[in-house]
Write a protein that binds this DNA or RNA. Structure first.
Lengths: 357, 357
DNA sequence: TTGTAAGCGTTATCAC
DNA sequence: GTGATAACGCTTACAA
């Protein structure tokens, strides 16, 4: 902490503090010679204006708060948040803002968290949440804190959000399985309190109904996004008298867990069971076999939500706006071509041929 | 943003702003009746004191900055950072601080980052870095910003750090392999610019030498901590005329990548090749087979470094202090008991029996 | 183009 | 136990 303040710099440069302030803020009306001299003094002493004083007078911080759901283990549970965060950070950097993420929100008391938001640390919030009836949007509205949301909750209708068409995305995934000839298709869903869960289920249902396939409630499992829960869900499906020949997991981590369960049972993918995931996180290609999945443009989602927020803050755009970004089916190796009847239980043989060399 | 300030609250409660301030700061000398009335007004209006004003006058923010290396993909590359972050956040919450992480440091210009640090957003910094000659500590010292470091660089001798005994930890890992009878042991190291890389290599060397085993330079590979690089490194080792029978990977992600390479080649773990990892991240038990690894107490490392920093900030402890936390060998299933001569190339059979049901 | 001075919303030091 | 009042370090009219 260089103890110098703007006054000191002014004195050292032989100008007034207004001039130093102008230099600092790139105000045009400063003589080049003066400007250079001031910068030199500033750099010489490693001076930087104190954020608090600046924030107090401008009433803006140029800091954007990022709220992730259950922040302290989101990193562990689902790498898609990392990509979203990356997009948020990148957009902030481009526009001269700083994205700040508070660690371990779960360990903070509710009141502490709310007070933090109310105390104007942040100019605005990017809320990453597809939780149904998440209380946060309501709070932010009441506290008149500008925010944009990544994720869509039909119950809340946030004025500014970016999302994907969940129904259509899930529909594409299941349709892919159907096109490959599968008729008995299971689904491993996310938790019920996520708004995207019923939406993705509806996509599944739509594809099934359209193909004239029945939906067997036995084939509907629920996980909590984690690898472990995907593993458990797949085990349940394998216990069935008539297991599915294909499974749609509504995120990649659960899909990976499902793969794991199949491996443990000596079943081959895609020969014995086809799997489609959702998200297209990096891990998806690292798993064996690489996952066919629905790609969410997560980095772009982060960027768009952030740009939308900054536009809002800078008054460029006051109207409500909803951005729906496109998803794509990424075909890799976990679905193969033709389904076979499952032989169960069965040990794996020659599985090394799955991925040649 | 409730536009109210402390003055407004004072007026509404029929007191002076000093009294409101006392209430806000839990100052004892306020009559209970008055205190209650003030709180009621505060809560009624959702008032929270503006951080900037408070920071300006107190010259403290109660915010701790967290610096991760190459912050924007640290999440993706190595989940151990998530655990460390969790520890930092938890300790902050306990002591009434907020841990803030700036997203996407890589996208910020260097000057912007340094100015952010200099502008006193943070009371102090927890620096997570084992990079050799990381320039950040030097900068922080010059700018007189209090910091503690997680990770140790013998070249820098930071006054406050928490770390593990890297040499001993690696030694334990390799010794475990030796005890199982392995003689030809490879190592997949981290990048050379990490201070822990030579240290872990030294542990490997020590164990080998102690057992009278030669170190074959062919068996020394370098990765960059990622799954992919571990995969590549293992492939290299498998190309050798005389591949190792066991490999020590200096983090779990690379170990998982190595597992992947073995799987692709149809080799069994631990029958054909034993693997030890390092870190003990959650993914370690999710991989097949679950990894034997060296456990770093990552959450505790985050907590201890944070507590140390806060003690420093609150003047409880000015002396340099170094905390070395213990590591433990966690034996799971990737090393097995007795090594066999590798039959190469060979297809996997009956691997399903690896993990029964 | 530059300087003077007011004010941002708190806390803290005094009196009372 | 309570209330004036002076900082804190900046930005920003307004004057010069």
């Amino acid at each position: 902490m260089s103890q110098l303040n703007i006054e000191d710099i002014a004195r050292l440069a032989g100008v007034s503090r207004s001039t130093v302030s102008r230099v600092l803020n790139d105000h045009p009306s400063v003589r080049p010679a003066v400007r250079d001299r001031v910068w030199q003094v500033i750099n010489e002493h490693g001076y930087a204006p104190q954020a608090a004083a600046r924030h107090l007078v401008t009433q803006r911080t140029r800091i954007i708060g990022v709220l992730f759901p259950r922040s302290d283990n989101f990193l562990l549970a689902n790498p898609i948040f990392a990509s979203i965060g990356q997009g948020i950070g990148r957009a902030c950097a481009q526009r001269g803002y700083i994205a700040m993420l508070s660690l371990s929100l779960r360990d903070m008391e509710q009141k502490v968290l709310l007070d933090m938001l109310r105390s104007r640390h942040f100019d605005g919030i990017v809320l990453v949440s597809s939780e149904q009836n998440d209380p946060m949007p309501l709070f932010l509205k009441q506290a008149r804190i500008p925010y944009t949301r990544i994720g869509y909750d039909p119950e809340q209708e946030d004025p500014h959000y970016v999302a994907i068409d969940e129904v259509e995305a899930a529909y594409k995934a299941v349709k892919h399985l159907i096109a490959l000839g599968h008729k008995r298709i299971g689904i491993i869903q996310g938790p019920a309190w996520e708004a995207c869960t019923p939406a993705r289920y509806n996509g599944y249902k739509k594809a099934m109904e359209e193909a004239g396939l029945p939906i067997d409630p036995e084939l509907v499992e629920e996980g909590d996004w984690t690898h472990t829960s995907g593993n458990d869900a797949m085990r349940q499906l394998l216990y069935l008298k008539r297991p599915p020949t294909a499974v749609f997991a509504t995120n990649d981590m659960m899909a990976a867990g499902a793969l794991h369960a199949l491996y443990e049972r000596g079943l081959r993918v895609p020969e014995d069971m086809a799997i489609v995931g959702f998200d297209d996180v990096p891990q998806t290609i690292v798993v064996i076999p690489p996952l066919t999945t629905i790609r969410q443009p997560s980095i772009e989602m982060g960027m768009r939500a952030t740009e939308m927020l900054i536009d809002l803050l800078e008054g460029k755009e006051g109207q409500p706006s909803h951005i729906i970004l496109p998803t794509t089916l990424v075909v890799r190796q976990s679905c193969g071509a033709k389904p076979q009847h499952i032989q169960f239980p069965q040990k794996r043989q020659e599985s090394a041929s799955l991925d040649g060399h």
